[in-house]
Structures are given as structure tokens and as C-alpha cells.
Design a protein around this nucleic acid. Structure first.
Lengths: 233, 233
DNA sequence: AAATATGTTTAGGTTACCCTAAAATATCCT
DNA sequence: AGGATATTTTAGGGTAACCTAAACATATTT
């Protein structure tokens, strides 16, 4: 129950843990290649780091099988995630950043900021629960409610959904999504899906009930938009 | 005139350049031992780093003679100093930090923050000119006005001075100085100096003309307080 | 079941930054 | 000027984090 002393992890280690957390969240144990792809690091380097993380009891590693976070690893990952997301909120809400620019900035600051700074920011924001891209913010004591969301690419024609969260890594895609009106809170109805993974035609409203527009979006991008079904009309 | 592309310096390199800038400011070229002391790093390591910095044309190094910043080195040092001081201002003025806590936080953030973040903070603060400890903030284009200040330890009995700046590194001393009322803007009159580097007796006012108190301070601490003579009454 | 393809790990190398101990150089003092 | 002292540099090591190329293990296909 005691939070236990964290011996201060390096920036790279924090990045690995975050990546593993995120990959594990989807399902199976994180594999070397997945981690390598996500961090843009060679698989060999990842292998080396996995040994180090396992030595520090942050992960368990079954060779050739993948890795899983231990309790301590999960706690560390969630702490970093909290910092990252609080920072993103602060940058957009207080310092006027656009939502497509905050990811990289937060990515660097999350390793340098003290807990005190993060908590002061959280306080100034009134303890936000979601970051600007809709990702849930872990609490100080490491709880997150990861809602089981569906991707926009997996929604049937005729359904009405509410956008809950979008992938936050790619600035360009974020700018484009903003242009389409697709942001957390927006309401979307799937009007049509062209065959063979063709474009999805949508009606996009702002979620507040006022007007909306018709838009088309590719399956690739749609797979980065997470939604909740709200039922037809 | 063009700011020239900065090839992104590492945290340690930025710290060395800041230290050299500060040592050089006092007078002679910075020596290996001075730098080692200030950064709490072994002289041998400093020697090695000097070679690397000289290769990158950030300093000129005359073996056994000390080092001097080049134009590029100075520019880099001032950039880091600007970031550090803007951060200190932001932390105290916007996030409610006490002046004794901001140094360490800024020390870590200054290497991670983007120029954009720093400028947004500066904007939010209305482009401050001094940090909470009275240190001048270099402008975006690398100008600083380093006023030639005298230390409180070097002021004669009877003089009236205004506190302009205090050493910002030691949190405990800062807390103590705050307790004494010694902060930038405060007015001080030297009432007495005990012989053999004994305590200095002061009258300390808040600079706004209202009441004041009598305090005593050691020479060591007085040497960390920089003042400007304002003449007796 | 063997052959191939894919994914993972080991082997060996690099760079940045730090260390201690020993050697080299400079300065200081009589 | 010459030896003691202080400072600086070199020599030799260590660790974290990355890399490529080669070896190894697993999965897939025929």
C-alpha cells in the first residue's frame, strides 16, 4: 500500500515503461518488435533494455514471449502518464497551445518536472480527468479508468457515436481531425462505408446539438478515433 | 546577425556553459577547478569536457590557463540563462512557488523546455526583466545588462543601500534571507560592523518606506547579497 | 517433417559523461 | 633558482543507451 520509494528512473526507462503499458493495454504481452517500432529504436536495443528493466523488477520477461509490467513498473508507467497528460492539459488550457503541438513538449517535460510541479499544475486546472485528446489522467495514487472504447473504423453504418479520444502522437493528423470537427465530445453518425476499406462518410456535429456537416475519412485515420456508441438518435 | 542554427546541446553541456559564463563574468577566464567546484564534478572530468567544448567551438581553451566562451558559447549560455530565469519567474508568479524552491526545478526544466514554451511563459508574465532573486533576464537576442553591483559585505557603516540581487543556489540561505527581510527591492542601512569579519548590523526596511527592523548578518552571507548604494537618506 | 520466414537475442562496437590515480605543468616561497 | 605545493591533464575504467550484423528460436507453409 505504501507507494514505496521510487529510485528515480531515467528518461528512456520512463519511455519504455509507458510504451509497454500502452501495448499491454490493448491485449497480449508487449513484444520486442512492437516496442521497437513504437519507440523508433532497433529491436536489439530493446532486447538489451528489457534485460535491464527485468533486473530492476519493473517488468517480467519471458524470452521470445514478450514482457509484462510488474506492480512497480505499472506504477511508474502511470506516474509518467499522469505527468504527460497533466502537462498537455496545462499547455493547452493555460498557455494557449494548440492540441497538435502539446505532445512533443509534454514528452520532454514529463521527465524533468517534479511531482510538486505536476501537482501544482493539476491544482491550477482543477484536477482534470482527461487530457486534450481524451486520454484519461491517472490519479496521484495510480488509478485509471480505461473505458473500453471502440474505434471509429469498427462502427456500423447508421450508428450514432460520441468521440471520446484520439491518438495524440501525430501533429498533422490532429490538425486534420480538428479541421473535420472530430474532437472529444463531438457527435458523429456513420452515413456510409465504401467497400474494400474505402472511405467512411460521416455526419459530424459538435456534440452540443447545433449544426453539423458531412465529411469523409479513410479507414486508417478512423482507426485512431475512439468512440462510444450512443444509439441512433 | 542571424541567430545561427543551434545543434541542440546536451543538458550537461548547457550546465558547463552557464557555469563558465558566470565565472567569467566576475573577471578572469574560468579555471578547471572553479568549474569543477561549482558543478560538483571532478577536475579530471571537467578537463575532458573542456576538450569537447573547444572542439565544438563553444570555448577557447589555453591549457593550464583557463577557458573563455566564444560568441557561440556565450549565446548558448545566455539562452540557457534566459530559460532558467523565465522559468523561475513563472514558477513563483504563476504557480505559487516560494523563491527558495524554484532554482532546482528550473535547473531541470531549462534543458527540456522548447523556446516556444519559454516565450509563451515570458509573454504571460509580460516579459520580465529580473528573476525572483534579482538576476537580469537576457533578452531573446542575447543581451543582458549586468549592473556592476557591490556586495553587502563590502559596504561601509552608515551607507544606505538597496538590495538588487541575491545568490539563488542555496534554498536554506534564501529562506533565511527572506526571514530577515532581505530581498530585491529592500532598503538596508549598515549600522555597524564588528571587527575581524564579525557580524554586520543592519536596519532593514521593505523599500516602500514603511517600518523596518534591526538585524545582524555574518560576512559570509552578506557576500551573497548584491546591492546598489543609494546614499545616506 | 522440413524448409522458409519472422521475430528475438547475442556479440561486438560507439558515444557521452562521469570517476580515481598518476603524471605533467605552473606557481609560490625562501 | 630550486624545491614544495597546487593545479591541470592524461591514463585507464565504468555505465547507460544506442547501433549493426550474425546467431538463434519460433511460427508458418508446403
Amino acid at each position: 500500500m505504501t507507494p514505496a520509494v521510487t529510485p528515480a528512473l531515467s528518461g528512456p526507462v520512463e519511455d519504455y515503461l509507458k510504451a509497454i503499458y500502452d501495448l499491454e493495454r490493448v491485449g497480449a504481452p508487449a513484444t520486442t518488435n512492437d516496442i521497437a517500432d513504437r519507440l523508433a529504436i532497433s529491436p536489439a536495443s530493446v532486447s538489451g533494455m528489457m534485460r535491464r528493466l527485468a533486473e530492476q523488477r519493473l517488468i517480467t520477461h519471458e524470452p521470445y514471449r514478450g514482457v509484462r509490467l510488474t506492480g512497480a513498473g505499472r506504477r511508474a508507467a502511470l506516474r509518467t502518464l499522469r505527468r504527460h497528460r497533466i502537462l498537455e492539459c496545462y499547455l493547452t488550457e493555460v498557455l494557449g497551445y494548440e492540441w497538435d503541438c502539446v505532445h512533443n513538449e509534454a514528452e520532454r517535460l514529463e521527465h524533468a518536472a517534479s511531482d510538486e510541479l505536476i501537482e501544482r499544475m493539476a491544482l491550477a486546472l482543477g484536477d482534470p480527468v482527461h487530457d486534450p485528446h481524451g486520454a484519461p489522467i491517472p490519479t496521484r495514487d495510480g488509478r485509471v479508468e480505461e473505458a473500453p472504447l471502440r474505434t471509429l473504423a469498427a462502427v456500423a453504418v447508421g450508428e450514432r457515436v460520441r468521440v471520446r479520444r484520439v491518438q495524440d502522437e501525430d501533429a498533422e493528423r490532429l490538425r486534420y481531425l480538428a479541421e473535420l470537427g472530430i474532437r472529444p465530445g463531438a457527435t458523429v453518425r456513420i452515413l456510409d462505408r465504401a467497400p474494400y476499406d474505402g472511405p467512411i462518410t460521416l455526419w459530424v456535429g459538435d456534440g452540443a446539438g447545433s449544426m453539423g456537416t458531412t465529411r469523409a475519412i479513410g479507414v486508417g485515420l478512423a482507426a485512431e478515433v475512439f468512440v462510444e456508441i450512443v444509439g441512433p438518435e
